[in-house]
Design a binder for these strands. Structure first.
Length: 613
RNA sequence: GGCCCAGUGGCGAAGUUGGUUAUCGCGCCGCCCUGUCACGGCGGAGGUCACGGGUUCGAGUCCCGUUUGGGUCGCCA
């Protein structure tokens, strides 16, 4: 049934045909999106990545196959462009023209696809992923994948113009113990030894700075063997960059300009690709803001205190209030207990939610509990001024009124309190803030609000490991004025690390790197590395540091997240051509899979304790 | 590893306190239709209700387990 092209050459894409071509003979190739057979006249919508054009055939002398084309078949058409004789279609870019065909070639007839190839379908995602090549035919996904390609080109243009060099680093590297789990690759020629796939090109780009390349970037594939999320895939793409002889402000400056450039360049591309008008308007508004005023900064401490998160969603207010001092010594044991244990008591004021039904408050409590809070205390100030509180019996009127005043509580407000360790209070109130912000309609979903989060702590205590861990990574430069406290109070040392946050999502992050061998060695010691292990794992870096290393700093974006946010997608799966599902498998290819025993033999590998499959 | 949500013809959904032949839309197939573009009209096919077990006179519906996806906590330097 399939025919060859028999020498036909496509002259243009479907939606690239315009009124200028009226009278021209064109050769188009694409997929049958729709066949409307009216009996004597047949309308066929031909689709390719550019869009749709209508082919019209009348019965007299036409190829009879036009009337019975299977949708999604690939066909070639030679015909003449004409102004539409009948009604125009204002929804189509090619809505005023049509093609009268002379020749039809059915290049490949399609079976009925398992789901409709059109936008707005609500098909189960596993089915779509099993037939991803069909899913990707849908305009919605085509648009995002093309937008991704165009955005990467913009990034390359900008960075290249700024003197950055695109340098590739290897995918087969050594395993490093810190951080995420590595994907391992066995070596055939070194039985029992393994490569690791890079979690990021971190050390290699630092060494490129040692080599003198000055400004490096790479669109780099990275791998982390951790559980997936809507915005996390086991392999993902970073826009990775590093600069020499710079400080934190230089990195933030060039990246603010990069983002300003992208925001400026994106709207016309998005319009061309047919993105939603509100989304484009949002990007344009953000462009005006960032191109005019740059991007604001907030310290990690302020972000945690006000938003309960190191990736604050700046699209709305409803900030957190520390009421520890107000409730110190009060009658409510939960509050005083938390304070005595070195914790904190903080509250959120949900304006106008004072009459929230008990059931919804219970649901908020459940949210708080998933973040480690033991419960949620509340004060509901009803519209009539009466006050209902979960802890009124433990507190006198004076104490209660002082607390309400500290929270700026007014008639109709709902005050929610968490009392626990700093991290638990922040996490739970931060999550409640987002949930309430959504429910109360405070979030403008077309807004793009950027913020630089700076001054992260250098170290983070791990209960599990019973030691300090690097919050960013072990090569992050501390602030010089804090470094003297590295032994006396390691938790208080701030790092020259920064994240770029968009709408509550961490879109990228980086740091100034340590370039002094003594600081680096001390850092590894604090992280619990013996000199032997440090030398074993990072010896090449420490040695490199002895041969003249420039001060350097860098940043990496999660490209998938960036494209997801700018294209209004709900998951990074929507901007990755062939994504993996929750358990890290590929439903289309059936990866991962068992391999031939011979392959294992060659690698001197034996599979033990294999789960029933 | 934990918690939550979902699985009903090819696709999406409805299915009441458990009760006769499982309903609807899209798609598909056939016939008709010369200006459709969410084409229309008439007719038709297509279902082990994810799988296994249990409760019951009777299970799509209730219970337990499994499985396949989704969300999330842990985890992700």
């Amino acid at each position: 049934m399939a025919e060859s092209m028999q020498g036909l050459k496509r002259t243009m894409r479907c939606a690239e045909v315009s009124e200028k071509n009226i009278g021209d003979e064109v050769t188009l190739m694409g997929w049958v999106a729709k066949c409307r057979n009216k009996g004597g006249i047949v309308f066929v919508d031909l689709r390719d990545r550019s869009g749709i054009i209508q082919i019209v055939t009348e019965s007299e002398g036409a190829d009879p196959r036009w009337g019975s084309l299977k949708t999604e078949s690939a066909i070639a058409v030679v015909g003449t462009v004409e102004k539409r004789g009948g009604a125009v279609n204002p929804n189509l870019r090619t809505g005023t023209i049509e093609v009268i065909p002379k020749t039809l070639r059915v290049l490949s007839e399609a079976q009925t696809p398992p789901f409709l190839i059109q936008d707005g379908i609500d098909t189960r995602e596993d089915l779509r992923l099993r037939y991803r090549y069909l899913d990707l035919r849908r305009p919605e996904l085509q648009r995002r994948i093309i937008f991704r390609s165009r955005t990467v080109q913009m990034i390359r243009d900008f960075l290249s113009g700024e003197g950055f060099l695109d340098i590739e680093t290897p995918s087969l590297i050594g395993s490093t113990p810190e951080g995420a789990r590595d994907y391992l690759v066995p070596s055939r020629v070194h039985p029992g030894s393994f490569y690791a796939l890079p979690q990021s090109p971190q050390l290699l780009k630092q060494l490129l700075m040692c080599s003198g390349f000055d400004r490096y970037y790479q669109i780099a594939r990275c791998f982390r063997d951790e559980d997936l999320r809507a915005d996390r895939q086991p392999e993902f793409t970073q826009v990775d960059m590093e600069m020499s002889f710079v400080d934190q402000n230089d990195v933030i400056d060039v990246n603010t300009r990069l983002l300003a450039y992208l925001l400026r360049e994106m709207p016309p591309v998005m319009r061309e690709l047919g993105f939603d008008g509100d989304l484009i308007a949002g990007i344009e508004a953000a462009s005006a803001e960032v191109n005019g005023n740059g991007i604001g900064r907030i310290t990690w401490k302020d972000a945690m205190d006000l938003y309960g998160s190191d990736k604050p969603d700046m699209r709305f207010g409803m900030t957190i209030t520390d009421v520890s001092e107000t409730v110190r010594g009060c009658g409510f044991g939960v509050f005083t207990g938390a304070l005595e244990a070195g914790g904190t008591v903080r509250g959120l004021n949900a304006k106008g939610q004072g009459d929230m039904p008990r059931k919804r408050i219970d649901r908020l409590t459940e949210t708080a509990k998933t973040y480690g809070a033991k419960g949620l205390a509340y004060i509901a100030i009803h519209g009539d001024g009466t006050v209902k509180s979960s802890f009124s019996k433990f507190m006198g009127d004076d104490e209660m009124n002082r607390l309400i005043a500290a929270m700026n509580g007014e008639k109709g407000d709902l005050l929610l309190f968490a009392a626990d360790r700093f991290s638990v209070v922040c996490a739970s109130l931060g999550a409640l803030r987002l949930e309430l912000g959504e429910e109360m309609g405070l979030i403008d979903h077309c807004a793009f609000k950027f913020v630089w989060v700076v001054d992260f702590p250098l170290l983070e205590w791990s209960d599990e490991e019973n030691r300090f861990m690097a919050m960013h990574h072990p090569f992050t430069m501390p602030y010089e004025e804090d470094w003297k406290r590295i032994d006396s109070d390691p938790g208080s040392v701030r790092a020259q690390a920064y994240d770029i946050v968009l709408n509550g999502t961490e879109m990228g992050g980086g740091s100034v790197r340590i370039h002094m061998d003594d600081v680096q060695e001390k850092m590894l010691e604090v992280l619990g590395f013996t000199p032997e292990r440090a030398s074993e794992q990072f010896g090449f870096l420490l040695t490199a540091f002895k041969y003249g290393v420039p001060p350097h700093a860098g940043l990496a974006y999660g490209l998938d997240r960036m494209i997801m946010l700018f294209s209004g997608a709900g998951s990074i799966r929507d901007v990755i051509a062939f994504p993996k599902v929750k358990d890290a498998s590929d439903l289309m290819m059936g990866a991962p899979s068992a391999v031939d025993p011979k392959q294992l033999e060659e690698l001197f590998l034996a599979v033990t304790g294999k789960e029933e499959s």
